[in-house]
Amino acid sequence: MKLKTLSLVVLALALSGCGGVDPNSPQGQRQALFKQMLKVSEDLGGMLRGRLPFKEQAFVAGAAELDQLTRKPWQHFPQVREEGGGESRAKDEVWQRQARFQELAQAMEASTAALVTATASKPLKAAALVAPMQRVEDSCKACHEEFRAF
């Protein structure tokens, strides 16, 4: 009985390693960054929508973190789609329409920079942050609609 259980555990561990994305690959790097961006963005949006308590310092720090994160994933999209990676949600258009993809990446960076600028007005009012945060969310959505396979 113990040998069977041990065999199943070893098999499960071996299979869990198959088909995964190498965290050091370009795909693994960008997926990790996008997950971080999503987490921070959800927290910021949650503060503005009342799902989370609005905490001024946490919002300011989160906006700055999101701004820094938005500048990183684009370098992990090589000029040609990498082969042999795990499942990617990026459409082939990312590599076929690089100019448009870069345009949307720059729009995202601009929207997070504007959000950071909006956090400089003191005292910070949640209502004043709704529009800049919406522009961040809209820039995410625009890129997803064109370049992400759902």
Rank of each mutant, 00 (worst) to 15 (best):
M133L: 12
R30N: 12
A99P: 00
V10N: 07
V94D: 01
F59K: 06
L48E: 01
G45H: 00
K141Q: 06
A110I: 03
Q98W: 14
P73W: 14
E82W: 12
Q29N: 14
A118Y: 08
H76D: 12
G46C: 03
L8G: 13
F59G: 02
Q96F: 00
G85L: 09
L48F: 01
P78I: 07
V60C: 06
A63F: 06
L8T: 06
D22K: 12
G50N: 06
M108K: 01
V136E: 01
P132M: 01
R89K: 14
P23C: 10
A128V: 08
S121A: 12
F150W: 10
R71E: 12
P132E: 00
Q134N: 10
E82F: 10
L124N: 07
P78M: 04
L15W: 13
T70C: 10
Q106M: 12
R81A: 08
L3K: 05
Q96P: 00
K122L: 15
F34G: 12
P78N: 05
A126C: 10
L104V: 11
Q68C: 00
P123G: 07
V116H: 02
T117I: 06
L129F: 03
T119V: 14
A14Q: 01
V10D: 08
E65C: 07
D138Q: 10
G20R: 11
G86N: 04
E87F: 08
C140W: 00
S121F: 09
D22C: 09
S41K: 03
A113I: 00
A128R: 13
K55C: 03
A99E: 14
S16D: 10
L129R: 02
A105Q: 06
A131V: 09
D67N: 15
E82Y: 15
Q31K: 07
L44Q: 08
R135Q: 14
E103C: 05
D22V: 07
A114E: 02
V116M: 00
G17F: 08
N24S: 13
A142C: 02
K125E: 09
V9S: 00
E82C: 08
T119P: 12
T119W: 15
A107P: 05
A120Q: 15
R81L: 01
A149N: 10
G86T: 06
Q27C: 10
S139N: 01
V10M: 14
T70S: 11
V80Y: 01
A58P: 04
F77R: 06
R51G: 08
P26E: 07
F150E: 11
S121W: 05
Q102C: 00
D67L: 06
M133A: 11
R89I: 05
L8I: 13
Q75K: 15
L38C: 01
L33E: 07
L13N: 04
A14I: 05
E42R: 15
G62F: 06
Q27W: 02
L44N: 09
F147G: 03
